[in-house]
Nucleic acid binder design. Structure first.
Lengths: 351, 351
DNA sequence: TTGTAGGCGTTATCAT
DNA sequence: ATGATAACGCCTACAA
């Protein structure tokens, strides 16, 4: 390592000169060592080392038309379930020789479109998207440019897009069915904002479908939309309690909401699951700790599979366009049979 | 929007031809509209629209020697406190016209070096680092190439590097001092792995320093290192209880560890804070919910400031190299005065 | 096996 | 204000 030099603009031709060969040869020595003599390779490597040469990726990309960059547009990174997937995605991409460009849509489909275009301009060869509903122009943009992409955290192959994830509405339908089996007949739903959010929308829809499958309907006042926060969950629970007879069970579309609901039950002196059952979604790191019954989401596998899918596509390798991953209902302590006695009208206590 | 064409390889010269001007003029029309006539701008924009032109970023970077890319190497994204900072960093960078390349070191300094070099090869103009201890070669690499960088989540200006963050050892010293003031004299520490992790190391050191400031020493068997998980926290608490008389308070170097410790106390029938005080670090989203007394860390501000610092440096704008951000001890329900009666030796219950 | 030379798409420079 | 031309650093035919 040459310590004194301020070797900023070392280029391959400098390496070649020092190694006593042509630039093209030096290039081959580095990227196709099998096409070059042992001796030259050694000299080139020595020169690289001595000069502290780093390839210029812009030039490489320009010439080779390959950036080795993958982009992801995520609603927000500040969400443990997405963070886990991004982490897994990055690790797998890194192993496969790709780097990850991360950007956020803030749950705004127009912004998602803009950010995707930006990622592509920046050279992303493939794009990871969250959910299944995107601006139609987004799909068109990707199609025209021939950029491979994959929808994650959702599964709806009939829509004709590549998916790695699970069907959100089937997942909550399964939760509701589980509650029905336990004996519940009156279920409330605390949802995150459904606008521009197909995961949230589908999760609410799943509960409705489960009702319909039993020939019933989920009443509109059994659904409340709240911000994805603890206090959103608390507020949601209070809302549900304020509508006449209280539901015997509550399905939350994220664990954070469920934590808030749990917290509010605690504050109100409601016993879980005796007085009311609460079920979450995600299997957050702390769900086990709080004994929350919840739906486990394969975030890590989603990240890994998305990486593998895109890289396979880019290499022209065959790879299925649809991977339905398993979600698993983890029965812990917050859901049980409804209590025999009719729920006493204690809603006034809820403010 | 031209729907039928498969406009992949539209270049600026195509736009220029359609707009009836020279390539260079078209370039200026897009990037320096003030140097070009209104008329040409309009024609160029129309041509861009019609052809669906997207600039080739590799060519742009190669020629202009600017990538508008910033890189970050983070131990893991899968950690709410880092996720928050990355989220804030990305949002701020996006506003400033930069994109973010994210990569992870997995708490390994050699890997951190490699990843940093990779980020720079990929064209990052600036680099965000976590912590203050890095491979010396990393600093050298950045210095030689003249790449601006900033250390985050730490503050030690005497080391001669740019910092935006807080002094981890001062923070835990403050926690220990708070406990001393409450009347505690025997404090245990549950730390994350300190290897290659200056934040963890400094946090342990802070408690030691607080002891020394009072002319005492923190006994080695009052410190345990555990993985950053709930069960790490539980295990850590059990370890501390297994060493003779139990400490009256425990400082955890992250909230996750504290949640585990709390959980274990609960399982053991230990009342918090009557029997034992527990303090965390981070002010995790759920800390308020669990009434955890903890140190609040300005993750969002760290992310924003890091973005602003690097962009200012790249623009040649003056900007201070050191920003010490405030941490704040949030007193909630898990720390209080030690109980009067001598703690009964109930350690055998802790397995 | 190695050298030579042209071009990837853009912006900068120098004219006009 | 605009046009022409030359790089930016690398890779890859093609020639030797």
């Amino acid at each position: 390592m040459d310590k004194s030099s301020t070797n900023k603009n070392i280029k391959l031709s400098d390496v070649a000169r020092l190694a006593g060969c042509a630039t093209g040869t030096a290039s081959r020595a580095l990227s196709r060592p099998d096409m070059v003599s042992k001796d030259v390779i050694k000299r080139v490597q020595a020169a690289v080392e001595k000069l502290g040469y780093t390839p210029n990726n812009a030039a490489k990309s320009l010439r080779s038309r390959r950036s080795n960059l993958i982009g992801i547009v995520i609603p927000t990174i500040d969400h443990s379930i997405f963070a886990q997937a991004v982490n897994a995605l990055e690790n797998r991409l890194s192993q496969l020789g790709y780097s990850l460009l991360v950007t956020t849509s803030q749950f705004d489909l127009k912004r998602e479109l803009q950010q995707t275009q930006m990622l592509v301009e920046r050279g992303s060869e493939g794009v990871v998207l969250v959910g299944r509903m995107h601006d139609p122009e987004l799909y068109e943009f990707l199609r025209i440019r021939g950029i491979p992409y994959i929808n994650t955290y959702a599964y709806r192959p009939s829509e004709g897009h590549p998916f790695v994830g699970f069907d959100n509405s089937k997942a909550t339908a399964q939760i509701a069915e589980y509650l029905f089996t336990l004996g519940h007949a009156d279920i409330g739903v605390i949802s995150g904002a459904t606008k521009d959010n197909d995961r949230a929308t589908d999760r609410v829809a799943g509960v409705k479908e489960a009702y319909r499958a039993r020939g019933k309907e989920l009443p509109p006042d059994r659904i409340t939309e709240q911000p994805y926060t603890i206090s959103g969950g608390r507020e949601g629970l209070r809302y549900l309690l304020s509508k006449g007879k209280r539901p015997t069970a509550v399905v939350c579309s994220s664990d954070i909401l469920a934590f808030g609901a749990l917290s509010e039950c605690n504050a109100l002196g409601l016993h879980v699951p005796e007085d009311i059952s609460i079920i979450g979604f995600d299997d957050h790191e702390l769900a086990a700790h709080l004994r929350l019954t919840t739906m486990q989401v394969p975030a890590v596998e989603i990240g890994q599979r998305a990486a593998e899918y895109l890289v396979a596509k880019l290499n022209g390798d065959p790879v299925p366009d649809h991977a339905e991953l398993e979600v698993r209902l983890i029965a812990r302590g917050t859901a049980g049979p409804p209590s025999r006695k009719t729920a006493s009208a204690r809603t006034e206590k809820a403010r």
